[in-house]
């Protein structure tokens, strides 16, 4: 399983549809992206995911931390 957004291989099945056998949903354990098997190829296929929204290692390393981590004030 490859994450369509960050291309990590650390992704797995999150759930199958609670009612019927309608779809499965997957999750990436690196970037938290979730996707449903019934979504279009432009969302679920790593090669077709919009490059503007792809998360590369460089982009992830530059992401802001919100809010900044508060350490002890003692």
């Amino acid at each position: 399983m490859i994450c369509p957004r960050c291309d990590s291989k650390n992704a797995n099945l999150l759930i199958t549809s609670p009612v019927g056998n309608e779809w499965e949903m997957y999750i990436c354990n690196e970037c938290s992206f979730t996707w449903r098997s019934t979504e279009p190829e432009t969302i679920i296929n790593p090669k077709m995911y919009n490059p503007k929204f792809k998360l590369t290692k460089k982009k992830i390393s530059m992401m802001t931390v919100n809010p900044p981590i508060a350490n002890s004030n003692e």
């Binding site: 970037c31 938290s32 992206f33 979730t34 996707w35 449903r36 979504e39 432009t42 969302i43």
Partner: peptide, 8 residues
């Protein structure tokens, strides 16, 4: 998913 490029 609400908008196409939402993370989830």
């Amino acid at each position: 998913r609400s908008n196409k490029y939402d993370g989830g």
